[in-house]
């Protein structure tokens, strides 16, 4: 039986998750990590990716998270992200539109193209694709 720990997921707009969990997984800028109870204190920045929460052994919920950071403290884990969405909250149409927009921007760069706008388009593309992947994962799960 894994040990539970307090987990809090916050966005500037709302409290996404608050309660105990036995496992939480996120994508950081250094790669994807998983956190169990009694993890060493750690701080890392999050990339866009999949948030996996196991509230207790055997149940597993996935969600979308965008840029943010994770703080592992002895008294619990705090995840703060710009946006977090459960699969049922993801607007697939909007994500698809965003994906196409970003692809368009990347394949047809403007005259005054610079590296930063390119990077932003790539992040936008990442966001859209991750959202859609999480959405499609959840729909196949339920069927």
């Amino acid at each position: 039986m894994p040990k539970p720990f307090p987990l809090m997921v916050l966005t500037p707009e709302r409290e996404f998750y608050s309660g105990s969990a036995v496992y939480v997984g996120v994508n950081t800028i250094a790669g994807s990590i998983g956190v169990l109870a009694d993890h060493v204190p750690m701080v890392s920045a999050l990339d866009v990716g999949t948030l996996v929460i196991e509230p207790d052994e055997g149940t597993r919920r996935t969600a979308f998270h965008s840029e943010g950071f994770i703080e592992v403290r002895p008294d619990g884990v705090y995840i703060l992200a710009q946006a977090c969405e459960w699969p049922e909250e993801i607007d697939e149409k909007r994500a698809l539109e965003a994906e196409e927009r970003a692809k368009e921007r990347i394949s047809h760069p403007d005259e005054e193209l610079n590296l930063t706008t390119m990077a932003h388009s790539k992040v936008a593309l990442m966001r859209a694709m991750t959202r859609r992947r999480i959405k499609s994962m959840s729909t196949t799960d339920t069927k």
Partner: peptide, 10 residues
Amino acid sequence: ILYDPSPTQV
């Protein structure tokens, strides 16, 4: 505290 991958990047 462990900063992953490095304090500067965080």
